[in-house]
Amino acid sequence: MGSSAHEIQGHLKKYYMVFGALLVLTGVTVAVAEFHVSIGMAIVVALFVASIKGTLVACYFMHLMEEKSMLIWILALCALFFLMLLLVPMFTIGEQDAGLMERMRGLSPN
């Protein structure tokens, strides 16, 4: 990244602006929780806001935007494996729930 004293001086304002944005977005996350919206909406909003906050931290505080593409590709591969970690167990959930539904149908009404 550009890291001469003059260039860094120019970045300072950006850091404060990102700081403000992060605090506002934290407020948005808490407010959504307080309004007790539906669980589906809460998940979408909370994870969307968290993703924006994470992107701001990575791009500006960690200067990821200014790094060479090789590092971006390494991290993209890492992100792909992270998603696989999250999604692979999901395929087993469907099977488990199907079994549970079968047993539920066998329950007597009382």
Binding site: T29, V32, A33, I39, A42, I43, A46, L47, V49, A50
Partner: peptide, 8 residues
Amino acid sequence: LFPVLYLL
């Protein structure tokens, strides 16, 4: 962690 553990 904050939204996942505390809010969902």
